[in-house]
Structures are given as C-alpha cells and as structure tokens.
Design a protein around this nucleic acid. Structure first.
Lengths: 244, 244
DNA sequence: AAGTGGTCTAGACCACCCC
DNA sequence: GGGTGGTCTAGACCACTTC
C-alpha cells in the first residue's frame, strides 16, 4: 500500500483499503449478492496484512454494505433475501408479528422535476424524473399512500408494467434492473391532517391525523437517488424506532 | 481467563471480558464520566492480551456505553457534557440549527402504577411510581407536552423542586442523583388529534394533528426504568431519523 | 518522558461450510 | 480436506495528552 503523497492527506491504512473496496463496490466490480474476494486475496492484492483488510471489511459490514458469513465468505449486501426489510420500512402492527405489505401501483410517469425535488436529488429544476404513486396494504387495509421520485436518467426504462409485475421489495427491483443499491436514508416525520387525495386513497375522512414521512435515500458515495413523500395511517400500526 | 464450565456455555473470550466490564459498569465500580482502567491494566487483571480487551471495549464503545479518547483513556458514557442530546430527542427545527429546548415542569407526584405502565416498567400494577408532567419550549414556543413515569423505589427522593432547579438534561439528573444511566430506548410513533389537555398545554386547537411519541428507556442490563408519553407539535419542527 | 488509545503485522488455532 | 471468516496472541510503532 502506497501512502498518498499530497499534503495533509493522512489516513490509516485500513481506511485507504476501505475506500478502495468502496470504489470497487461503486464501480460494480462485485454485484449485490455476490461474494467479494477472501480476506487473504484482498490482503495480497493490496499488499497489506490480513488483519488490516479485516478491519476495513468490519467497518463496511457495520455500515451494512457487506455481509460476512462464516465459512462461506463476505458478500455484497442486497435487498433481495434481506430478511430485514424493516430497516427501511419502520411501520409495524400494534399487535402481532410484522409482515411485508402488498403494494398497489397507481401510476408511474415521467415529468420534469419540481424545484424542491430537484434540490433533494441533486438535479436541476426541470430535469427528467420518474414519479411513482402507490398504496401499501397491511393485511388488506390501505395503510400507506406515497409518491416516489427518481432521477430520470438512472431509471430510464422504468414502466408501470415493470413495477406491477414485480414481486418483492421495490429496492430489489432498483438493484437488479437499474444497478442502484440503496445504502441509507434520512426520514423526516410530522403529523398532518389527511387532505382529499390521501383520504380518498386510504379510505378515511378528510382531516384524519396521518403520519407524514419524507424520505431521501442514498446509494454508494452519498449520492441521493430517491425521494419519497408518504402518509401513514397509524390507527392500528405505529412507526417503531430504536434509540441507541 | 477461565472458561466457564457449565454445559453449552461457549462464548469468545472477548465476549466474556465484555460481560465482566459490563458487570462493573452496572455495579457502579466506575461512574459515568470517570475513566476506566487502561487496556493494559484490564488485560493484566483478566489475564488476556491487550487486543482481546480492546475488542471488548470496541463493542461497548459502539453501543455508546464507553467513550474512547486517544491519549487520555476510556471513559464511562454520561449524559452530562453529551453534545449529542439528539441521540434521545429527535425533534429538530425545519430551518436552522438544532438547539436544546427549555423545560417547564408542571407537576411531579407519587402514585400507584396503572396496569399499562407497570407492565412496561416490569412492575406490578399498584406499585409506587413517580409521574412528571412537563412542557418543552423550542425558541419560546410550547412544542412538546409529556408525561414521564419512573419506578418509585429507584427515584425515591425525586421532588418537583429538584426538577425545577435542575439545569440541563433530565437524564443527567437521573444519572447523578439516582445512579440511573439511560443506555437505550424504544420509541413508538403515531399521528393523533390533539385532545383538550394537549391543546391547552400547547396553545393550539383541539383536533390539531400531533405526533404522539411513546418511549421506554432502559438502563444497564436491559432494565426498563422510564416510560414517556409525549405529543410533539410538528408545524415548525420535525422528527429526524436516520436509516442505516 | 511516560502513559494512553490507534494502527499494523505475522502467525496460530478454531468454527463453520462445502466438496 | 481445503477454504472461509472468527478469535487470540505478542510485539512493534504511531499519535495524542499530560507532566
């Protein structure tokens, strides 16, 4: 491992290794679900000790970018097979076990980004975006209505049909079809009164209190690639959050 | 380090060390804000290598029980000096920098635990509890109204006066005066309509949508020691959550 | 200068998985 | 049996803090 030579650029070896692995992930050298090379292989490639590679991988695993499996290898995190969908959907029933909701796609169209969305997605106002509208049903009850915005260039071939036919988490579709893996997200929550549109979609009275959830999701390299504006009906479900 | 001898009790050395350190924290051998012995000292005490102690401490630090400071030592986490009060209070202004709110204590009384509270606090219905009512002001605006329940035995000497006089986070008071350090918490969120009481305290109309936040806090050893039922006014503030 | 945590190495052995 | 990650050790050196 060669030390960087520009001024004021010190960082531990394992951080440099981490950055290199991150670069390979971002470049798609290893795809979600695939195994990355073994610790020994990487140590040989980067000319550092296995322990140093290990520490780099440790951090990436703790950030949920990689998943270690003893005896098998280290794998690129994927939204397929992810038992923990509740990492991104925190809505759970007041009683009983959480289970994955059914999604009903209402619409999927291409339009020009409003200023607010453009800003959040790091685009210019007027740039092409895809907008999706859908409802989530928890045990047959309409519980979530949401609008999703995506950058048009990244999600060029996305159609209503593609969405409707898809079984499973939307993020798994994004990953497989559009090479976009969601790494983390930021959510802003507030209480609002149901407007006419929300009331219609959720089958409730106008004015019913709803939990408004605004999400911005990021892929590798802190690049924002999704904005969601949702309202959650919280009469029989709640948003669960762990503070550590 | 002696291996435990009961059947089916395997665990890595560093996990055993971690449990021992945790025990000392729980027993109060080192108080919040104090330094624990150096890694070398602990390695000698437990007769393991420094690296093994290091791994144990790493985990405790990542769980926010300990804080490492290079060149100085490793310290027991404390709610004093904690720059990050936003670990437990996720409400931030829509615009501008977050800043700590002012607290106005309305009441602090002793009563018998309702069944629901008792269950959450691992007590029997009718056991002694302390109930606090207060309002939080964000830049002079009443924004949060909450009721707090605490186990009566642990918080025996807690009075309204003690609370009113206290400057700083309530958890710092609990830590110093009642030897109870909050380690983590679980929050359940939903949207509700303001009832008469909430409306009065927050100076809003009955029916205004509010964010209802129910928190259960835990101290060392997953022992529940606090229940909070709060309503947040989210017209100029929102609840911020990071999904990783 | 002495003490602390932070990094890095090299090597050993273990636990798990798959062929 | 051979490969993977997981644990543990021992020792070296670095960076930061305090005296």
């Amino acid at each position: 491992m060669v030390m960087t030579e520009t001024i004021a650029t010190f960082s531990p070896l394992y951080q440099q290794i981490k950055a290199l692995i991150l670069g390979s992930l971002q470049a798609g050298e290893w795809k979600p679900g695939e195994a990355i090379p073994s610790e020994n292989d990487l140590a040989a490639r980067f000319k550092v000790s296995q322990g140093t590679v290990r520490k780099a991988i440790d951090e990436l695993a703790s950030e949920n970018l990689l998943v270690r499996r003893q005896g098998k290898g280290t794998f690129v995190a994927t939204h397929h097979e992810d038992r923990v969908h509740f990492r991104f959907l925190r809505l759970v029933p007041d009683n009983g076990e959480p289970h994955y909701p059914k999604s009903k796609i209402l619409d999927c169209k291409r339009l020009r980004a409003p200023a607010e969305i453009a800003k959040l997605l790091d685009l210019k106002a007027g740039d092409a975006v895809v907008q999706i509208e859908r409802i989530l049903f928890f045990s047959e009850e309409a519980t979530v209505y949401e609008e999703i915005w995506l950058p048009g260039t990244t999600f060029k071939g996305l159609t209503t049909e593609r969405l409707v036919d898809w079984r499973g988490p939307m993020y798994a579709l994004f990953e497989t079809e559009f090479a976009t893996h969601m790494v983390r997200a930021t959510e802003r929550l507030r209480a609002v009164a149901a407007d006419e549109l929300s009331a219609k979609h959720l089958g409730i009275e106008i004015g019913t209190p709803l939990l408004a959830v605004e999400r911005v999701s990021f892929t590798y390299g802190e690049r924002p690639v999704e904005v969601r504006k949702a309202v959650y009906l919280t009469s029989t479900h709640h948003y669960l959050n762990e503070l550590n």
